[in-house]
Design a protein around this nucleic acid. Structure first.
Lengths: 239, 239
DNA sequence: CAGGATATTTGACCTGTATCAATGCGCCGA
DNA sequence: TCGGCGCATTGATACAGGTCAAATATCCTG
């Protein structure tokens, strides 16, 4: 094991097409290495941070899978997102210098720790990085608004179809299959994200399965008819 | 009309405790004046920007009331927020250099136009401003996640109670009554925001009214028992 | 000031999803 | 290899909120 493989380095990370370094040139990439202070492993089921924790850093996911969630004061949990390799989490903490949600690893994971002070410092020097940070935050806002549309307007089948299409699309961007996936989350967590009960999630999976749109076996899912899913998600896009 | 009243100037804007200038000192405030290129009036019902419009600027609301909304491809609209004086809109446009939602004035309004290039330029010079911009974006993310919790987990009464409490709290921060308000949006728009049908919104208003928690007459609402609303919104906070 | 368009309220009924409950599957540790 | 436990599936039933419809109130315009 050479020092290079141990040292934190965006400049030779294989996620650089998906993660913070998007669009940076070689020089800027070198500089970005300084932003990442170290890596941190998070075991399955363990929190990366919790609601109320002091905010210091953003995290770039190297490996593994996370969920973020908020809770109402009487304990109801809402999953606000599922994050995979190359995605940035922790943005919720900037407003109040404390985290405003929980981030829990759904499988053993490793993240790059990027102290936010470093990010701010460097993005004053590099407009490209500054712009990139702004885009990441804005993208999260747009994503959240898409979830609102889902939760506010769509029916169970539409929600699940949208969810599956979104997941598989993101996985495909990471080199995985376009049609097969292994869910890292429980039916309950899917339900929490989609605003439905776990039984409804299960029933909807079964329904899609009966209609030969997908094949399901517990956490393993194969998408047989992606167009059918798209049509459910967006009735107008038929043909 | 003196030149001063026409010239755009954060340094003597009466919203400076609520808007972009929060926490800036006199010097920084002077600089911030340069960020605002001009003002723009938007008549009731008119869009400030539309989904797909090129993104150039953020907007600080000086007067008036806006709604932002996204739409699914088959035309269903989801209101993603209501914005009032001192709030910043347009953040949705940063990711893709095009706006990703619609912003429509619900009453005659005036906004300060802040070209995003200016904001980025100046926030490279002033860490305080940089931090402030980041906080504004992060706050929007946290707000959106709160809406997800609302849409995913709460029942109609809880949603409307939360909505009213939030509105009246923001209005109070702007010097308005803590208990009386005039809704600037229709039942349909409230319903779209809260993920329920206009009839349900109306019924829920009537229910609160029968229980003497509020008094309603069309758009005019008086909150008689704020604690009762809080209790509905969060069953655990009772006493 | 009249008249039509728009927004709101209210009622009756229906449906999608929640709830409650039982069974089944699969993984992990002893 | 065998329990045991967490997760998933499936069924039966209930209910919150949606849908459809009609009456009423308000606002704008000519």
């Amino acid at each position: 094991m050479t020092p290079e493989t141990i040292k934190v380095a965006c400049s030779n990370c294989n996620l650089r097409e998906l993660c913070m370094p998007v669009g940076l040139n070689r020089d800027e990439l070198q500089k970005l290495d300084d932003v990442v202070s170290n890596r941190r492993k998070v075991a399955q089921g363990e929190p990366l941070y919790r609601n109320g924790d002091p905010f210091t850093s953003l995290y770039a996911i190297r490996t593994g899978f996370f969920k973020t969630s908020v809770a109402s004061e009487d304990g109801r949990e809402q999953v606000t997102g599922f994050q995979m390799a190359g995605e940035i989490i922790g943005l919720d903490g900037i407003t109040s210098d404390r985290h405003n949600c929980n981030a829990v690893a759904l499988e053993d994971a490793e993240v790059c720790v990027m102290p936010f002070a470093n990010i701010e410092h460097l993005s004053r020097e590099f407009p490209v990085l500054q712009r990139h940070v702004h885009k990441i935050m804005s993208r999260e806002i747009v994503r959240d608004q898409g979830v609102m549309l889902l939760l506010g307007n769509m029916r169970a089948e539409e929600r699940l179809a949208a969810f599956l299409l979104n997941l598989v699309q993101r996985l495909h961007a990471r080199g995985f299959s376009r049609s097969e996936l292994v869910l890292r989350m429980t039916r309950d967590e899917i339900g929490s994200y989609l605003g439905m009960k776990l039984e409804t999630v299960s029933r909807t999976f079964s329904k899609f399965s009966e209609e030969n749109i997908i094949e399901v076996k517990q956490r393993w899912v194969k998408i047989l008819k992606p167009e059918a899913l798209k049509k459910i998600f967006n009735p107008d896009s038929c043909n």
